[in-house]
Nucleic acid binder design. Sequence first.
DNA 1: CGACGCTTTGACACAACTCAACAACCGTGG
DNA 2: CCACGGTTGTTGAGTTGTGTCAAAGCGTCG
Lengths: 241, 241
Amino acid sequence: MSNDRFDNLLARKLKTFVPLSPDELEHLAEVQSPTTAVKRGQQLVHEGQPEHRVFVLQAGWACSYKDLPGGERQIISFPIAGDCVGLRSVLFRTADHSFEALTDSVVSSVDASRMLQTFSEFPRLGTAILWAASRDEAMVVEHLVSIGRRSAIERTAHFFMELAERLNLIGLAKGTEFKCPLSQYVLADALGLSAIHVNRVLRQLRERELLTVQRGTVTIHDLNGLRKLSGFRGGYLNSRG
Amino acid sequence: MSNDRFDNLLARKLKTFVPLSPDELEHLAEVQSPTTAVKRGQQLVHEGQPEHRVFVLQAGWACSYKDLPGGERQIISFPIAGDCVGLRSVLFRTADHSFEALTDSVVSSVDASRMLQTFSEFPRLGTAILWAASRDEAMVVEHLVSIGRRSAIERTAHFFMELAERLNLIGLAKGTEFKCPLSQYVLADALGLSAIHVNRVLRQLRERELLTVQRGTVTIHDLNGLRKLSGFRGGYLNSRG
DNA sequence: CGACGCTTTGACACAACTCAACAACCGTGG
DNA sequence: CCACGGTTGTTGAGTTGTGTCAAAGCGTCG
């Protein structure tokens, strides 16, 4: 809550996994670059480019994705405040996915070498970071399950359930209502659907009085109905394992 | 190549990422349990069960997957000799996916606590393991892209291209030909298709003289054709990043 | 005010699914 | 060694979910 240099989002997130000492907090504050503002639409990492930094999103919305030869793209994840991007590829010479801001955002970054150094010099920090990375991977796996085996409406419902829970965990949702600046085109690329079908699915969700999306605001009307429809089990999201 | 206790598959794999000292090799040999044989169909980890071990597959084929309420399932990955299973969930109290043997297999295991200890006491080993885990995650991401944005035939082609490369890396494929004990039902659950459609897709691949699958043996006839069809870029698989 | 991005809707096409039946293969026990 | 049952593979006919194309409605912002 305070304003001092140890109060950064990454530290706050890692603290939910393991308690951190003053030394560790100082190190965390020190490895992160000063924050920089990035504009909506700006690409921070391009697949195939050499990239040796991990980004920490401080504010705003972003997405990581891969482009395909035919011009399609698949969005892998939507990092939000406190999330890291590029942890997976600290060890690879080149980025294996692209990363861009969806709204005006604020990011800081950590050098890959310093990140590795952190692992050996501050094992508890390493553990916490590993924990955060495991949670991210669990989300990708759940995303894979959604696209592979859930119908369009089920996976859309599942997506919003997960998003609501993530936003609640960092205090960016008021229970059943939250801001969500994702266009139907963007949702389509995440859900493996066409934008037009996303529109139809959202209409169904509205008509079945489960959930409405209106001018960037999502409102959940029937949490149990959505849970039942989507099969959502949020265990993979919280820090208590 | 030798038969002594330091010659285990995990060590051999990690060595492709970073060179390992005798101390580190000894530690690796020591943390792994003795190998045990498991029968085809045997479930080693059940989603939701408390599980504090990482499995290392020494021989045979396995799959990790998630079941859905409706009885469907989505296969996440096919671990093969040398691969680790459950690394992602060393930190969680309960397994976030199931894991079973698809053929008679041999596995060893590492205790989660010893795995974490390894991270702090042998940072180089930790780095290598992290590297291996990153590669696994990159495969999951590519799988997600396949299911989300590639057609049935494209994603099937992509799957076999990746599999061929993985098997070649560990010497289990003779260039364009390899054993593959995956039934069409199993392939279907991995590719997000119905078994019947997998059959039709395999026929198309055969008729287009790209690849044949016959009695557990896959033969690639037209590598370039497959590469072009699938958009396969194997960069995420090899240790050179 | 106009332009642009995003959403909504309808008509139609097609990829993939379901159901049903049969054929090949494989291990097992008589 | 053969007969058997279960598993896996193959094929056809019909259905359906989702994609494509086209066009119109809205909001927002310069």
